[in-house]
Write a protein that binds this DNA or RNA. Structure first.
Length: 920
RNA sequence: GCCCAGGUGGCGGAAUUGGUAGACGCGUUGGUCUCAAACACCAAUGAGGUUAAACUCGUGCCGGUUCGAUCCCGGCUCUGGGCACCA
């Protein structure tokens, strides 16, 4: 009888679920370990073989840690709010909640078939009101908090209110980017509404009128990380800049901490680098340029104060608030024209337009160091949203300034000794400064320090650290997301009462109103489960709201009084191992870190980073097949002849192609329009082209895990996905090698069963060799799993089995150990054999075998004997052989004499237990 | 343009601290079993070279350090990813 994986797998999946084998409870006696996957968005397409890759790895690790005696938390849930389900609702009228239910059910059945050890009793779904009650709660905490720069943490807004009452906002320690200044008298005289408006400049969740990324096709605003090259990440629609009133989160207050604590995380360098780039810390100075004919000054941010004497002009962003004040009447027309043109450009146009443009305002500023007059221009290469929205232009040291100066025939002063700036600016920092008054003769770094010191002394500037990171826009004008726990009284936002969850109301259509308000504006007062004030907020939260804290809810998923109890979050603490795709590098991973730090500041949890160790699994790419249709015909030409025709390449379903050879009959049946297709063949065969690309339904290159499980079983699938290569690496999907791992399991089965499927096992018969074999495997499997080298574990298990088969070893102890080693990878077959061995509780509850070093101790070592570094032959010596002994034997060996060919050795290197090298 | 990761047989990949390059698997070839096929098993399999061996070359390219380099250093190149008027 053969290995009947279908029966085995369904039996044990039922056993595990009936006996609650995977449920986990807090247990202070045991050390905890938290293994988490980035939870999936349940799309209508279901899982393909790429999705479970990370889940399999984390499941193996979780099972391994359990065997090592840890109390392992390994949950799963769904990030179930989001755009695709809503788009589907718009097309079909099916309520997103209904579609979500169907999709999650499908996901669940696919996941169950793979044999994961998830504790499903802890499942959460972000679209469940019991869950998003607490997402709203966290938003409320953010709204009720401001950031105190002095204590470097979030504090209650009441603290700020108290401060304003007694001091105004002079020297106040609370983080803001507003320039507003007020005294305590002013504050105390203000109306309640005015006070609330001003507080919005400080709250960590705030409403503001700012430039946002508006995507007309999606009908919503987007955060910066959802825009790629001026197009929306989802759908690839154009995005424009628009001034709108939106909710934002003041993540910029956390920029420094988010940047700094990256260094302690066990994440890949490239991922940390992406976050660092995104935060974009740069050190420099703010310098003040007094205006010549107006009161007031232009502040510029620069990272190169050493080049300050090389300033030939200033440039403001067209949107800069001073532009309208300083423009002279004779330049008014040209400035207004320029501003209007740049307003019309989208972000994408502005980026792709490499032409130098700008206009002179007619005004001058006074150089704070030299006292000279400096012309003030406006140009759209200066961004309003970075730094101060103004730059000091140093054409000799900055290429953009150089191009600008050249274009408008502005003189360029060179402040670098012996550097040629006739062809381009000199941007390196390794020069000596000249033409710069008291900075002359200094290196750039010395000059930077001295220039800042001078600016501080003369009160014309100070040191400044600037971040590229912007506050995160937090509202979306869509339907399928968390409603805001906010109502309005006279346009001022207020929080709803403490214990209330604002539920998503039912509406007639999932589209904006006639007036362009978000879909939720369709809800009447009676449609809301809670209504107060003049109106409810009609925005929803973005997709990343629910996923920014779900790892906390898994610790205490059914708590109705807290988002997570302190006791439980203290026990489970940080996620010890987090596995997911690199596409979340700046979105989800940055926002989760932000929320974790915030909740830490407020004392709700006692750790300030969510994910201690993170692995990005590489994407599994699809291997698409193409057929070539001859233009304007229903004729298809084989790959080798396609250049003789004008053809269009079309994706063809990989399921009707074998080894790049098209199954013509299946192809004719595949699509109605191909029923009468004709073919130009070579040797009677149609060869398809291929391409490695992302797996997607539209490319017909997807493979579902279900098909493979049907054919080979879940254990084979699990082993094979790991065997493909290192987890982090991108790799094309191919089922070429799947027979290999399947044969491994069959070989194991056959080794342990007779032809009637009776278990073959012997007692205490193992040879010394078998002990060595199994202990070598124990060592390697343990070490490799510990260092997340999941692919080499499979090889080691194969090697071990090959040896045991050769040794005809069926000894109970050895086989038990082997089965436990295998069980994280192939839990079903392991469980089956485990019970056949006479055990009566799940293998999950057993212990990982203990490696015994003494068994592997060898008496001798086979030395590679190399000549000038090249291995030529091997010679065994006992481990206690002296160097002299080894040298003598080697030098007298006939092969040595042969390889030396009469020459005398210059040097003989003997490294004990490593190598012998003879240099001649 | 800047930053990060990577380049090893026909293919996926291994080599953990500078010490036998190519483990394990796929594929291919030959053989055993079979009426035959499938399965299974055995053997070979980096390239050149030879009846066989000897030998030569070989981890993207050029150079360096070292008794010894896939691994360390310098320069280049290609692939993938990130950022990009960021002052």
């Amino acid at each position: 009888m053969e290995y009947d994986f279908k029966k085995i797998e369904s039996n044990w999946q039922k056993y595990w679920s009936d006996n609650l084998i995977n449920q986990v409870k807090e247990d202070s006696e045991k050390q905890k370990f938290y293994v988490l996957d980035m939870f999936p968005y349940p799309s209508g397409a279901g899982l393909h073989v790429g999705h479970p890759l990370g889940y399999i790895a984390s499941d193996i690790y979780a099972r391994f840690k359990k065997l090592k005696g840890f109390n392992v938390l390994h949950p799963m849930g769904y990030d179930s709010f989001g755009l695709p389900t809503e788009q589907y609702a718009i097309q079909t009228g099916i309520h997103p909640a209904v579609a979500t239910k169907i999709n999650t059910k499908r996901y669940r059945s696919q996941l169950d078939k793979i044999g994961f050890s998830f504790d499903w009793s802890r499942e959460v779904q972000t679209s469940d009101p019991k869950y998003y009650k607490w997402t709203q709660w966290i938003f409320k905490q953010l709204f009720q908090s401001v950031y105190c720069k002095k204590s470097d943490k979030a504090v209650d807004v009441l603290e700020a209110i108290n401060y304003f009452k007694n001091n105004g906002n002079l020297d106040c320690p609370y983080f803001t980017d507003s320039l507003i200044q007020f005294t305590k008298e002013e504050w105390n005289l203000w109306s309640e509404q005015k006070k609330q408006d001003v507080l919005l400049y400080y709250r960590l969740a705030f409403l503001s009128e700012t430039m946002v990324n508006w995507c007309p096709d999606l009908g919503t605003v987007l955060a910066n990380d959802e825009v790629k090259n001026g197009l929306s990440e989802r759908g690839g629609f154009p995005v424009e800049q628009k001034k709108m009133k939106q909710w934002s989160l003041r993540i910029t207050a956390y920029a420094d901490r988010l940047n700094y604590s990256l260094k302690d995380l066990d994440w890949s360098d490239s991922l940390k680098e992406i976050q660092r780039n995104w935060i974009g810390k740069s050190k420099g100075a703010i310098l003040n340029f007094q205006l010549e004919s107006f009161k007031g000054k232009i502040d510029v941010f620069t990272t190169r104060p050493d080049t300050v004497f090389g300033v030939n002009f200033l440039v403001l962003a067209p949107e800069h608030r001073l532009v309208s004040q300083i423009v002279t009447s004779e330049h008014l027309d040209s400035v207004n024209t320029y501003i209007n043109i740049s307003k019309l450009k989208t972000e994408r146009d502005r980026q792709s337009d490499k032409k130098v443009s700008g206009v002179f305002t007619g005004s001058y500023a006074i150089h704070p160091f030299s006292g000279e007059k400096v012309a003030v221009w406006i140009a759209d290469y200066v961004l309003a949203s970075y730094g101060t929205g103004a730059v000091m232009a140093v054409p000799c040291g900055d290429q953009r300034d150089w191009l600008f100066a050249n274009n408008f025939n502005i003189d360029i002063l060179n402040v670098f000794k012996d550097k040629d700036i006739s062809e381009s600016a000199y941007e390196n920092k390794d020069a000596v400064i000249i033409n710069s008054g008291f900075l002359n003769g200094l290196s750039c770094n010395e000059a930077i320090a001295k220039a800042i010191a001078f600016a501080v002394e003369k009160k014309v500037g100070q040191e400044k650290i600037n971040y590229r990171l912007r506050d995160a826009v937090f509202s979306r004008q869509r339907y399928w997301g968390e409603p805001f726990p906010i109502y309005y009284k006279k346009n001022t936002p207020y929080l709803v009462d403490d214990d209330v969850v604002v539920e998503l109301p039912d509406i007639d259509k999932y589209l904006p109103t006639k007036d362009g308000d978000p879909p939720l504006a369709r809800a009447h007062e009676s449609d809301w489960n809670f209504f107060k004030g003049d109106s409810m907020d009609t925005n929803i939260m973005p997709g990343w709201a629910g996923s920014s804290w779900y790892f906390l809810r898994f610790m205490d998923p059914h708590n109705e009084t807290e988002f997570v109890s302190k006791e439980k979050s203290d026990y489970w603490n940080q996620v010890d191992l987090y596995i997911g795709g690199a596409e979340h590098a700046v979105g989800h991973l940055l926002y989760s870190r932000f929320w974790t730090k915030f909740l830490f500041d407020k004392g709700y949890i006692s750790f300030n980073e969510p994910f201690k160790k993170l692995i990005n699994q590489g994407m599994i790419l699809g291997r698409s097949n193409y057929v070539y249709r001859v233009k304007d015909s229903n004729k298809f030409v084989t790959k080798s002849q396609k250049n003789n025709f004008e053809t269009t390449a079309l994706h063809v379903d990989i399921n009707i192609v074998d080894n790049d050879i098209l199954d013509i009959d299946k192809f004719k049946k595949w699509r109605k329009e191909y029923e009468n297709a004709e073919f130009i063949l070579e040797d009677g065969r149609y060869e398809c082209g291929f391409e490695i690309e992302k797996m997607s339904k539209s490319k017909y290159n997807t493979q579902t895990p279900d098909d493979l499980i049907e054919k080979f079983g879940a254990d084979t699938l699990r082993l094979y996905e790991m065997f493909l290569g290192p987890l982090e690496q991108f790799k094309p999907w191919s089922t070429k090698g799947i027979n290999g791992v399947h044969n491994f399991l069959r070989k194991l089965w056959r080794h342990l069963h007779d032809e009637h499927n009776n278990i073959l096992i012997t007692e205490n018969t193992a040879s010394e060799n078998s002990f060595k074999t199994i202990h070598r495997a124990i060592k390697r499997v343990e070490e490799d799993i510990e260092r997340y080298s999941f692919n080499t574990v499979v090889s080691n298990l194969m090697i071990c089995l090959n040896e045991l088969v050769e040794q005809k070893c069926r000894d109970r102890d050895i086989i038990s150990s082997f089965i436990i080693l295998l069980s994280p990878y192939a839990p079903h077959i392991a469980e089956e054999i485990w019970f056949e061995l006479g055990e009566d509780s799940s293998i999950t509850l057993s212990n990982f075998p203990v490696f015994d070093e003494s068994i592997l101790v060898e008496k001798e070592f086979e030395y590679p004997i190399s000549f000038n570094g090249k291995m030529r032959y091997k010679l065994a010596f006992s481990l206690d052989a002296s160097k002299e002994n080894i040298e003598n034997s080697v030098m007298n060996h006939e092969k040595t004499i042969h390889y030396l060919a009469g020459k005398s050795p210059k040097k003989i290197i003997i490294v004990p237990k490593k190598i012998v090298n003879i240099v001649f």
